[in-house]
Design a protein around this nucleic acid. Sequence first.
DNA 1: GCCGTTTTCGGCCCGACTGTTTTCAGTCG
Length: 644
Amino acid sequence: MTLTNLELAWALTEMGDLLELKGEEPFKVRAYHRAARSLENLAEEAGALHARGALEEIPGVGKNLAKKIAELLTTGQSTFLENLRQEVPAGLREMLAIPGLGSRTIRQIRQGLGITTLADLEKAAREKRIRTLPGLGGKTELAILRGLDMLKEAQDQVPLGVARPLALLFKKQLLALPGVVAVEIAGSVRRGKEMVGDIDLVAAVEPGHQVAEVMARHPQVKEVLAAEEPDRLSLQTNLGLKIEIIMVAPAAFPATLFYATGAPAHRRALLHLAAARDLSAADLGLTTSRWLAEAEELLSGSEWPAGVARLSDGQDEVPVINAKLPGEAAIATGTGAPPEANPPAAVTGSTATSTVSLGSITAGAQLEAVFYQRLGLPYIVPELREDRGEITAALRGELPDLVTLAAIRGDLHMHSRYSDGVAAVAEMAAAARERGYRYIAITDHSRSLVVARGLNLEELKAQRQEIDRLNKELEKITILAGVEVDILADGRLDYEDEVLKEFDLVIASIHSGFRQEGEQIMARLEAALRHPYVDILGHPTGRMLGRRRPYAVDVNRVIELAAATGTILEINASPERLDLNDENVRLAKEHGVPIAINTDAHDPRRLADMEYGVLTARRGWLEPGDVVNTWELDQLLARLKRNR
DNA sequence: GCCGTTTTCGGCCCGACTGTTTTCAGTCG
């Protein structure tokens, strides 16, 4: 019984939460949470450390926690945690997620009203009973109801940053099983949606495969759920996330991947396009029963979904695209013969055994291109498949040439040990260089953000000197001396103009006064956007996925102001934020506002979050030119307000 | 509960904002 570091971290986090609710001293609580974070970021598996008696090497883990971790590792359980769970009802722990409710208030509500579940809490708030408790009033009731709403929305959904690594792990492990020919991630994870409800995987399997048997014993799998269909395996993971594995014969793999990627609205719109061209779903090779059922229902129904009107509107101008797609011939025959002459079994829906050579094909993209070509469309990447105009754009040959991770030349928002980062400036630079970047900006916090050890003027000077020195020493990468300056509650920035002027680049962000009225928030943002030395507005809405709603920001207005003032807007790529989101990004592009995709990394490893930012950018239809950190450094610098 | 050119105790991130209050406790970043 070996638990992963992530599972150990959860156990410690839960212990910390329960101790907090019991009223333990804050420093003890923090010790549990700190150790949990250490475990999450640990490069080596704790099991291996335990084996050589080195658990106490983990930062924040001493004798006591080492013992508790050891028990978890050897038995899979913790008597300490079991006891805590007996004492503290699970509902109370859930309440900690409600913004504005801390452990003290939760204890008070429990003691005063005997409430231990979210349902009871909601009832009490609606019945205005919370305000009968000393020190609590109507606003707290409102905060509770709002928080509960947010929790409901996020219920059964996890951020992409949690689901995607797990999906990749399962994909890799499935591929290693005998009888498994190909595996692709499908569904909303493949489309890069910010919150996902489950993980969909499509596996091409051969007879005699043992996917179900092996997965049932998988250490991350808590339980195998009753299968809806024989070709589906439905797993509940320890994370509480559902994984659906669709197992099909290799011939049906491309169609199934296509179907299972969705989004449903995109599929529906494609079916309408097919119908308009007298093609059936089966003609397209989409022979799965689900596709056929959906097509039948759709085309017999009287209700015309949104996508249809668009398609028929554009009917006159629909060009017929016969361009051969790269890869199709290879997919069809492996020899380059025209696809029409020798259509692959998977595409025609023929019952003949497959001629598709999956071994020679690496990407799901190539497999699916066939379906789009049958409709006279160029290939549409998963990130665009949301029925947000991608089909019309495809028909007109106006699909964007989306930005890619490979096009990223630098990262303009990250923290070092000077403020709340964990690494030295040189370490961040080295990690960036390893990623192939040409430049980074070190943007530590400003002085008012005490919790994050914001820099005073002297520390700024010292950091500047270090950056200057490193720039002389280091080859192939340039470090910009930047700052993430706080937009204070009154709209001023946290440093004087004379100080801001000296940086190479300034990001302005809100870290306080989240609950201000819209008018006040917007006044602060407007002041920042109009500021001559503010180059980038950081995480413009301040949201945390599933945890904190945006502050009262009018995103349209922010975009207009950014356009008017020449300020760059950020896609904060941290998977906890993804801020701006995909739709706002697209709006920004329409207004000609340049975007910076930044990780906000506090640790060299988190520079890898860039991938999530790029996914969001792609879902927002951004092309490389729209993203300033794909540009050459001199082009980027010339574009900054301060240098124009 | 962890940690130590402060080493077995006494610190540990601390100031601002919010809501409910007449002077402050709780929450948050």
